[in-house]
Simulated scan of single mutants.
Amino acid sequence: MLKLHPQYIASLQTAERLPELFPLVQNAIELEHSTIPPYLTAMFSIKPNTEGSIWNILHSIVIEEMLHMTIASNILNALGGQPKIDLPNFVPEYPSPLPMGIGDGLRVNLEKLTKDVVKNTFMVIEEPEDPLEFPIKKMDLFAAGVPVEYSTIGEFYEALKQKIDEIAPDELPGDPEKQVTSGFFDKSVLFPILTKQDAINAIDIIVEQGEGTSTSPIDFEGEIAHYYRFEEIYVGRALVKDDSVETGYSFSGEEITFDPANIQPLFPNTKASMLAPGSEERRRIDEFNAAYASLLKGLHDTFNGHPEKLNNTIGIMFDIKLLGEKLCATVFPGKPGYTIGPSFDYQK
């Protein structure tokens, strides 16, 4: 389970004005984005036309992470803030902890798909919170000599929801013209955030799509939450409803096969600087990073007054997919047995 430094919960709990929430919601945008490069890298490492069930699971999760990033940006705009995306420090320097001071020692790599990566990275990122094991910390835990106990992403979003409910007016002050919607996403999950109840409902969508609910692996749309989709890959079976067991669900659905021979041998945490300037390999990774930069700029523009740009920006994802798969099939010069992985290097 990802654990955030308790200072973020404390900052939410002590906030008295909406502007105090701006940097914290910006942190949430950065966190939602930071999962996309590692998930995409694993997806790109699958050789074309193989491992279809796993590719579909990864692709569906990436799309929903883009949705969560959009929702968080809508919330920040609704509160009166300004999402900042096209900046060097927006992109983690992988291998890296994820944003907001992750406190469990997890460092996320850009690496090929393996069951170990699914279990020990992706499932850790999406793991639901256990309220009994990870309660919301009280302010008195910051007293001298008290060990730091970390909080969960779910607790962060719950504290954000409570604070918006406490201090925000019923009609939020942000410019409604900056709210982003798209036919790419259903109106039930991506809608204009105009009131504090809209913001509360939107936060519930982010949490339930990632973790499910406290009693079910299914989110409000009736779909399996991210954590359990990753677990499907790990255990090799689909999670389905099963009335014969107390939990109501079991991993007894169709088999989800995984053949490591269908995975490209990416060199982990590839950087463009590892490849010779002027070489064909460097040109390919530079093309990929240029497309990624276009995506970030497009998202920045979309969330800062040009919501009509979202569909075109999402279209860049198809370019990134083609360039990423081509890159992952390219032999890494000087590193026998490896191919080149996407680097997601920031470019202005």
Rank of each mutant, 00 (worst) to 15 (best):
K112W: 09
K137M: 13
E111P: 08
I85W: 01
I54Y: 12
F134G: 08
I125T: 00
E129G: 04
P48H: 05
A78K: 02
P95T: 15
P95M: 11
P135G: 10
M123P: 04
P83W: 06
K84Q: 07
E127D: 03
E64L: 05
S73F: 02
K84D: 15
G52C: 05
P131R: 00
L79Y: 10
L106V: 14
R107L: 12
P83H: 14
L141N: 12
K137S: 14
E111A: 09
V124N: 07
P128Q: 00
D104F: 12
L67T: 11
I75L: 01
E149C: 13
K84T: 13
N56D: 14
L98S: 13
M66E: 04
I61D: 05
E93R: 15
G81Y: 04
N77S: 03
A78I: 09
L110N: 09
P147Q: 10
V148K: 03
L58A: 11
D116P: 02
D86H: 08
N77G: 06
Y150P: 06
P88I: 02
D86L: 12
I75A: 00
L87Q: 13
Y150Q: 10
N49I: 06
T121G: 10
E51A: 14
K84Y: 10
I136M: 05
I136L: 02
L141P: 01
G101M: 08
G103S: 07
M69Y: 04
P97W: 15
G145T: 03
I57D: 06
W55K: 13
I54R: 14
E126I: 00
M66W: 12
I54G: 07
Y94P: 15
R107M: 08
K47I: 03
Y150V: 06
